[in-house]
Design a protein around this nucleic acid. Structure first.
Lengths: 338, 338
DNA sequence: TACTTTTGCTTAATCGTTTAAGCAAATATA
DNA sequence: TATATTTGCTTAAACGATTAAGCAAAAGTA
């Protein structure tokens, strides 16, 4: 029983050469003979050698790990983003560590600490709904490793960002609804403190105003955008004296909750009330009626975020120009707003 | 600009003591005076000291990281399992690295290599559908770190396992359908090479036989159980001369695809055909009609898997008895099988 | 032939932390 | 008072890989 794992030293001993030569052979150093390289690789395989990442990372000051912080992984958007990141980073020799905050600020801070502690070479993150205090993100910056934000970002942080144009998306949605004859469009949104939700709200207000419709504060609601929130806020909207004829919900999950309430109360969608979600989660096309929604180009976001990280580590620290990439979102029209 | 991160040495220099004393002070060693401890901690905070995980893990031969391998994270089952693991392991001072195979054997192997390379202290895994070759799992075992499997496991590996009783679940489903008067029950299952799917198929066959119904091979289908598979196989079943009056699908995703086809073709569920899924994914209660399904107790599975890992590392290597934990599954009856 | 260059290695230091071993001073015990 | 124990540190050697520096032998050049 060889309890101990094979190290570079074991290979060196077996071949009667120095550990340094082994290390170089394994890295195909030009100063090692073809013969020695072959021998080293053969013995490495024989002894089932597995390089010790900790040792090499410690020595090289580089872990080849990228930390990812997402609010949750079980939404199609985030899991799709992460999948693309993985694909891009993998090709560049990086592995990723996924952590989820479950929308909790405290958990998010813990995750960041864990990642820094693990000596990741960079962090790609999307912030929890709760997050207002940015000190942990400042901590990443002061650590000197690249920080790239996506979707749920924050202007004040002054770091690379990839996301979609939330403001414009609201315009597209509102104008689509108006084209269908809607006059009282409600908005179940997120909290304004989160930049993207604030942008959606601003876009909504500006689009309403631009189209000469009145702004009615009772039609603008802030929430956490869970399915439960969608149910509650929809119920609430239906109790208004002057009901809306359309509801634009800033998340598909909340839109789903809203749709359930509408279905339960026998309100016809889209005839009585038109409904639009946000995120283009797969279930939007599966429920009855299917829910119109905004496609956020998750794959592009994941790919670009990863590429931005790679650019950052490649770039000399000098000419660091900030990358703010805003993708155009796309409205997918389904039965709920026909 | 202090490019370099603060190390234990910096603290030692600031206080004119040895690095060893600093290390001990930070770990509350009893042989360090209260005064020194306080001073060390103060300076550590002042200099914004962040321990280097690589170094300590290298030295201690323990990374306090647990690797998790799942087929995907964007299913509620797996993300819920992972969430519980995280909660349990966190309390014990462990952090987790999540990797997803996307049901690809190749990716799974790569993930395992990455995790071993990162020197995780153990691996908790659920196998991809494709996985038949177990050599990578043997590799984990031969590495000497604990391996715990959940849900998609494998008897041959002879390692700890947590899952639900797939065989019994099939019985419960079949008997429920029979109680509703169904006589021709089809089964859209996974591939027999995967143990859990094989168990579901065996359970289905035995339950049908036990209830004196004939086994019709054209009603037993193997597939990858994606939504697309569900659509295709349902379409196929509807083309049979002698249609089934119930379909038991071994995954909610495939069940969803099947339901779409039934809805599209105007077949009434549950009146014409009853439908049952597996996994109790949230969307099963959201679609119309809502889909009956099996609750897999994902939270318990996650918790128990994590606890099993902790037991393993605590236990002396001597008295290693295998932990096989099989939970009873629960049928949630919804509209699709009323 | 006498030199320079290249090849193919070795030596030794290093990354940041932990820890066994050791040692002087302070305190306790006989 | 003499001896034993405890306290509070230091020294130095790891952990396993990488790498700058160096050095002898082989090959190339004049």
């Amino acid at each position: 029983m060889n309890k101990k794992r094979t190290t570079i030293k074991d290979i060196a001993n077996a071949l009667n050469i120095s550990p340094a030569a082994v290390s170089k052979a394994l890295h195909d150093d030009s100063r090692i003979s073809v013969k020695t390289k072959a021998a080293v690789k053969r013995v490495a395989k024989e002894l089932n050698y597995q390089p010790n990442h900790l040792a090499s990372a410690l020595r090289r000051g580089k872990s080849n790990l990228v930390g990812v912080v997402v609010p949750r992984t079980n939404s199609n958007f985030f899991s799709s983003v992460v999948e693309q990141m993985e694909a891009v980073l993998d090709k560049a020799g990086y592995n990723i560590i996924i952590t989820q905050s479950n929308e909790s600020f405290k958990k998010e801070c813990k995750n960041i600490d864990t990642l820094l502690y693990t000596q990741v070479d960079g962090i790609i993150a999307s912030m929890a709904n709760e997050t207002v205090d940015l000190s942990y993100y400042e901590k990443i910056k002061s650590n000197g490793i690249p920080l790239i934000l996506f979707d749920r970002g924050e202007n004040d942080l002054n770091v690379d960002y990839v996301g979609i144009n939330d403001y414009d998306s609201s315009h597209v949605i509102v104008e689509h609804l108006i084209s269908k004859g809607c006059k009282r469009i409600a908005h179940i949104g997120g909290y304004r403190r989160t930049r993207i939700f604030n942008n959606r709200i601003k876009g909504y207000i500006d689009a309403i105003t631009k189209n000469n419709l009145p702004i009615d504060d009772s039609l603008i609601i802030e929430s956490s955008l869970t399915m439960e929130d969608g149910r509650r806020e929809m119920t609430h909207l239906l109790q208004l004296e002057n009901r809306p004829d359309a509801v634009y919900v800033a998340s598909d999950y909340a839109a789903l909750g809203a749709l359930q309430v509408l279905n339960e109360q026998g309100i016809k969608v889209p005839e009585d009330i038109r409904l639009i979600g946000f995120g283009n989660e797969p279930f939007t096309s599966l429920v009855t009626p299917s829910i119109s929604s905004i496609e956020q180009h998750s794959k592009d976001i994941g790919r670009i975020a990863a590429e931005t990280f790679l650019k950052r580590v490649a770039e000399p620290k000098l000419k660091q120009t900030l990358n703010k990439i805003i993708l155009d979102a796309e409205l997918i029209i389904r039965d709920s707003s026909l």
